Amino acid sequence: MRRLFDDELADLDTSFKEMGLLVAERLHEAVQAFLDHDREAAQRIIDDDKAINQREIALEKKTFEMIALYQPVTTDLREIVTILKAVSVLERIGDNARNIALSTIAIKGTKRVPEIEELIGSTGEIVAKMVSEVLTYYVNDDARGSQSMAEIALDVSQRTAKIRDLAVDSMKLDPELVSSSTDYLVIGGYLKRTSDYVTDIAEWIIYKRTGKIVELNPGQSSFI
């Protein structure tokens, strides 16, 4: 029975990691599509969102089945609970990638601000890397590494605040930039929320490793 449980838990781990890598890739692609004004790439991301949702459903179903069948305790139970909680967060990150893609398709402004777009691009890369790194910390059972996500999230918060300020200033200076700047505000908000979601996953990894509930994102900053 124990060997069967270990095999199924290993499969669950693998599926969770695969979903996380897929989400990180979609997020990176969504930001790039926005910067390239690539509506076709954006539409592909929107279409692929169903696959992420299906993975979430399958993983949640598997975790419930394993809890009911094996009735795990202590570290085994914490690992399954971590996946159950974190997979829903990954799905929300996938939703943010989809929403960025939707913004790319809906965008109406033709006049752009290169400085803001460069900042969005670099911030998007940081956030996508956060998703990949937190998965590495999960694999390595690395509580200390997971705690480092809080510092990176703070950097993202500062970056998105700058995106917000630059976008508002652009609206004031040039009415023709109102539409584009509004899109910048929306994308900045998605990136900020995504970095917060990553800290949520990091908190569950720490719980998995130590059994302790910690708060890495105490809500000291907000995008708006």
Rank of each mutant, 00 (worst) to 15 (best):
P72Y: 02
L4V: 11
G121L: 07
V127P: 05
A30W: 11
L216F: 06
V139S: 05
K172L: 09
M1A: 11
N96I: 02
W204H: 15
K129D: 14
L12I: 05
A128C: 04
R3G: 06
Q158Y: 14
I93W: 08
I46W: 06
R78A: 01
T160W: 07
A68C: 02
E65G: 01
V81P: 03
E18K: 11
T75V: 09
I52Q: 05
I163E: 00
D165F: 09
R144L: 14
V73T: 13
E151G: 09
F5W: 15
R44Q: 11
R159Q: 10
K50L: 08
V186E: 09
E91M: 00
D11P: 05
V198M: 06
G124R: 06
D38F: 00
R112Q: 08
Q220V: 07
V73C: 00
L12Y: 09
K111I: 06
N96R: 15
E65R: 13
T199P: 09
M1L: 12
I116L: 04
Q43T: 08
I163K: 02
E133H: 15
D142H: 08
A24M: 03
A128E: 06
K111S: 08
E117P: 02
G145N: 06
L59Y: 04
L154P: 12
S146T: 04
T123L: 02
L59V: 05
I224H: 15
L216Y: 12
S181V: 00
D200S: 12
K62A: 08
I100C: 03
S222M: 03
R44P: 09
A42H: 05
I46P: 13
Y138I: 00
Y207I: 00
P72N: 01
Y70F: 14
G124K: 03
V31A: 00
D142K: 07
M149D: 00
T74W: 09
R39A: 10
I116Q: 07
L59H: 05
K62F: 08
A33R: 03
A101H: 06
A58D: 11
L9M: 13
Y184I: 10
A106S: 14
E56V: 00
S179D: 12
A41Y: 12
A24C: 01
D7A: 13
L9S: 01
D141R: 15
I57L: 10
A161I: 07
M66E: 04
K212G: 05
F223S: 01
N99W: 07
D11E: 12
Y184F: 10
I206H: 07
I100L: 00
A10F: 10
T160I: 01
L69A: 02
E8Y: 11
K208E: 13
K61F: 02
I105E: 01
I116C: 08
K208H: 12
E117K: 11
D11G: 08
R39Q: 13
K162R: 15
Y190E: 04
E203H: 13
S146M: 01
T136G: 12
T104H: 03
T74E: 00
K212L: 10
K17A: 12
S157T: 13
V178W: 10
E18D: 14
G188S: 08
D183W: 10
A58V: 04
M19E: 14
T75R: 09
R44T: 07
I67A: 06
K208T: 01
F5K: 09
